[in-house]
Design a protein around this nucleic acid. Sequence first.
DNA 1: TTTATTTTTGGCCAAATGGGTAAAAAATAT
DNA 2: ATATTTTTTACCCATTTGGCCAAAAATAAA
Lengths: 212, 212
Amino acid sequence: MVYNFTPSIFGQMGKKSDITRAKIIETARALFLEKGFDGLKMQELADRAGMNKGLLHYYFKSKEVLFRAIFSEAFESLFAGVMETLMSDLDLEPKLHRLVDVYFDKLVANPGLPIFILSEIHKSPSLEGLPDVRNNVPIIMSMLHENIGKNKDISMPQVFNLLFTVISLSVFPFAARPLLTHLMPPEVTFEGFVVQRKAYVKKVVSQLIEEL
Amino acid sequence: MVYNFTPSIFGQMGKKSDITRAKIIETARALFLEKGFDGLKMQELADRAGMNKGLLHYYFKSKEVLFRAIFSEAFESLFAGVMETLMSDLDLEPKLHRLVDVYFDKLVANPGLPIFILSEIHKSPSLEGLPDVRNNVPIIMSMLHENIGKNKDISMPQVFNLLFTVISLSVFPFAARPLLTHLMPPEVTFEGFVVQRKAYVKKVVSQLIEEL
DNA sequence: TTTATTTTTGGCCAAATGGGTAAAAAATAT
DNA sequence: ATATTTTTTACCCATTTGGCCAAAAATAAA
């Protein structure tokens, strides 16, 4: 098996199978995010991807396998940046501001991600096959603890409360998007709301740090 | 048709049909909350309710009708208390503290509610047939604005930011529950976390009010 | 008690839809 | 021209929803 390196508008890909595979993944991601595992039917996926059901199974032997590929990618794409930021050697305030940026920027581009991840985990909480984020938690916590400084005597639960506040404020607007857009006055767009919200959240984070 | 008022262990209900109806609703609520509309099959519902599929259709002519009953009830049961609190004549700080209580208490008893509501709305954002919460929003906002006081010059978007912060901090822990329990050290229970979290959120709310 | 009404069971059906497979056809590479 | 990869077509079989029906059981009314 030899790759051909024919130039292509599809970035690196020359092999036709790669293009098809990518088309499947791209379509499946959009539709799984919209409808969830149970809500998306393979026939609809085939139609929307402009191909037939048999071809889906040629590339992914089952719906389950395809879903896992989508889910893992979605999960990791969100958590990679978060972990990296939290593990960085920034000081407390810039680190948490950075975290807000990472979340908002990622989620503005993928607003459906939070509901998708949370609701699928809710329906089957096994989490096997995903990178075990748990291992990083104690490390992140003690780094934050050091960030805050030894002179202030802050307990671990309080460190976690601070971190979880930042995460809540960053993620919830997207999880609540459908309700939010419904409640907002029609002249305000979700995108507009979210832009000012990001600045507001950073301000709150700074306040919380000051009060520590 | 005459009701009989035979005393019963099922509260007010005497009529058998009401008992059955209640049994269906109760079981359907638990299962829809767990699996969502697409995930729950009528056969499973019948089994878990200890009855026969035919009987489900005797009381609810379709899955859709049954689901709408469950969803509306879930939606209203959460928003009724929230609206009532926000419309009350309490001052700013007690009002928002009360809001935190309402959310946490309701959600401790029904942790699956946020994901259920948000994900089902996400999948079909029509929201028809639900009480139109939108009408109350401007009223709530101007009441909060008055609560804050005329001397402080606070814009409406800032009022909304404050309110939305309270909601985010109250609801997100439950929406994120499956992930959260996975990330927490095994000796901490979700219930335990949530108890201390409620107190923490109230403290944050007070800080935010001070800084206005 | 007898008679009517309501509730419940159980089974079975029909149509649609579900995931998945296999063989042939088409396209591509050797 | 041959082999390999990719795609289509046509299927299979299981499940799903909604529905029907006849009969039994429970309950209420007379």
